[in-house]
Nucleic acid binder design. Structure first.
Lengths: 263, 263
DNA sequence: AAAATTAGTCCCATATAATGGGACTATGGA
DNA sequence: TCCATAGTCCCATTATATGGGACTAATTTT
């Protein structure tokens, strides 16, 4: 019941056990008594406490009353200011920059927040065309009319998507913007089937954009990336070429979000 | 060059090594190439990479380009929303509640932020006397006129304290408020010498308060705790009695902030 | 208040599992 | 294209994590 690629690549079992324990504590935050928490790990008492003590000694966890444990203050200090979104941007930016430069276009990374797309990264090959000033890092845009938005919507759980589609109205930003919920639903179906989204002038007349998801191990989507061109501008190749590059980039980035303690 | 109490209480060496490595990465955030970063740990390459891979496999770290490593996305997600102040409050609250109840008074925990005291915890034995409504959790009060403020000022590095004292004016809140920087400086000297601060009606006529520091292993101060009584109210014992309890509580809480990876 | 249960520590013989030397391959800079 | 260094893999050795169990401390029950 391990992963297919490589059973155990090369690891340190006791480190892994200790981290698994830490992971449990970090998620539980002192709600559950240790015994119950660690039941799943099936560690002998002796070993369990040895690990607990080492974790505590290094500041990863603190012991609170009633046999409960919580994240340690030193760790909280070391990780102060770290947010999932910030970290995602940090980890993905170099690859997006490279993608943008290789394709002579603008690359974006976005996530869904309150039914809007938040752009976390924007990297451009050269100077940004004027039309592209609509997207700014750490600001939001509507989801229904952008490539990234459509990808994120397409991978949403069905219930969520239904709620979103019912929540219109979808204002037309250009003559090509999809404003009919039924048509949007069909489009999203296609997006999911084809594993990419296209925005052909739906957000601004002269913008063309291709987007693909960043899939996690459980096939859910954490974020999406896109390549945007000005129509007038330099779309030198056909969609397939750009999609290949986008997907290569997505695959590379997905690896970063893969890992978590299993079992 | 270990701690005095117990040389190595009982630990898991490989877990410790792994966490020491993680600690370095978490503080460095990909600025330094691995080799240089881990130089101090003196680990053989083989072992170093085994640890790195295990850390990466559990989502603690991510590998980025140019032999650099950063905090992993899964960890960032697990620890999202955790702040040092929040964690400090969380860890200390139970002990302060107990202290308050045992002393029949109100207990506070505060830290210094931008020359003001931020109150992170406020726990009262019974219903809060009206005079005590001045302090509210997560809001700030001036430092120069409160017990906690004076403790925090007293343990500040000399340069910082000088800057603070030069930064007046110190507005009188009652007839007893210390408003003269020179007198305040003397008071702080006494506070440091006696290891506690007293506020006798300096912030509000009928409030009496005793405060002690939460010392970390390096003798710096992260926070201070206090007991506040209404003068009219129930100060049943003399200062010494309350100070003993305050200090016992402080000692207990200090342990929580002690740990960090040592060299 | 005493007895019983459970948490947490300590010790130590054993063998498991981390170690690290070294060969090998990938990567990336020049 | 070459060279240096990063990173992987393998394996014999033994250092080190393991876990049983005795023991103490802290809680809870009666």
């Amino acid at each position: 019941m391990e992963q297919n690629p490589k059973p155990p690549p090369s690891n340190s079992a006791s480190l892994e056990k200790g981290l698994a324990l830490f992971n449990l504590i970090a998620r539980d935050r002192g709600q559950t008594p240790l015994k119950e928490l660690a039941a799943g790990l099936a560690l002998p008492r002796s070993t369990l406490y040895r690990l607990i003590n080492t974790l505590e000694g290094t500041g990863m966890i603190t012991r609170l009353e009633h046999r409960r444990y919580d994240i340690g203050l030193p760790l909280a200090e070391a990780l102060h200011g770290i947010t999932p979104a910030g970290q995602l941007a940090r980890l993905c930016r170099p690859a997006l920059r490279q993608l943008a430069s290789a394709c002579g276009a603008t690359a974006h990374l976005g996530v869904m927040e309150n039914d809007m797309v938040t752009y976390l990264v924007k990297e451009s090959a050269t100077s940004v065309p004027a039309a592209l000033s609509i997207s700014v890092e750490n600001t939001q845009l509507e989801a229904y009319c952008s490539g990234i938005g459509k990808v994120l919507l397409a991978w949403l759980p069905e219930a969520e998507r239904a709620r979103y589609l019912a929540g219109g109205p979808f204002v037309a930003l250009t003559s090509r913007t999809i404003t009919d919920p039924r048509q949007l639903r069909e489009t999203l179906k296609t997006v999911k089937a084809e594993q990419f989204a296209r925005d052909d002038g739906e957000i601004a007349e002269d913008l063309y954009c291709l987007a693909v998801p960043l899939l996690t191990s459980d096939q859910s989507v954490s974020a999406a990336i896109s390549l945007t061109f000005t129509h007038a501008g330099q779309k030198k190749h056909d969609d397939a070429t750009y999609l290949t590059r986008l997907r290569a980039c997505a695959a590379k980035l997905s690896r970063a979000s893969l890992a978590t303690i299993q079992s």
